[in-house]
Computed example of a mutant assay.
Amino acid sequence: METYSLLREFADSWMLLFLFTFFVAVILWVFRPGSRSEYQETADIPFRHADKPAPAAATEKEAQP
């Protein structure tokens, strides 16, 4: 059997099933119960010091890995 035909058949069947399953798993992971607080904290990072500049110690602390 030709390599292209074999890979095309695999991509049309099993890989499509795998990618669809992976997509559904990612959607379920993102919208799982209890994840809202985690994403809300991440979304608020740009506004953490919106009312006043960050102190120098906090800036250095966040910059270090």
Rank of each mutant, 00 (worst) to 15 (best):
S35T: 13
T59A: 11
P33C: 06
F18I: 10
R32C: 08
P33F: 06
R32M: 10
Q40N: 15
M1W: 09
R36A: 01
K52W: 05
L6I: 07
H49D: 14
P55I: 00
A58T: 02
A50S: 13
S13H: 10
T42W: 08
T21P: 01
F47L: 08
L28I: 10
L16C: 14
F23K: 05
Q40T: 10
L28G: 06
E38H: 00
T42R: 07
F20D: 13
F22D: 11
E60K: 03
D12N: 12
E2F: 04
P46E: 11
T42K: 08
R8P: 03
L19T: 04
Q40M: 12
F10I: 02
I27W: 15
T21A: 14
Y39H: 04
I45H: 10
R8K: 12
E38Q: 01
V24E: 10
E62I: 02
S37Q: 11
W14N: 09
S5F: 05
L6E: 15
T3W: 01
V30G: 08
A63L: 13
I45N: 09
L7M: 13
V26W: 02
F10T: 03
I45M: 14
V26D: 05
K61E: 15
F22H: 12
R48A: 09
A54Y: 04
E2N: 07
Q40I: 02
R48P: 01
E41P: 00
E38R: 00
L7V: 02
D12P: 01
A25H: 06
A50C: 10
Q64N: 15
A25W: 03
E38P: 01
K61V: 04
E62G: 01
L16A: 15
E2T: 00
G34I: 02
I45G: 09
I27S: 15
A58C: 06
F22K: 07
H49I: 01
T42M: 11
M1A: 14
A56G: 06
I27V: 15
E9F: 13
F18Q: 12
A58L: 04
E41Q: 06
A57N: 03
Q64W: 11
V30H: 12
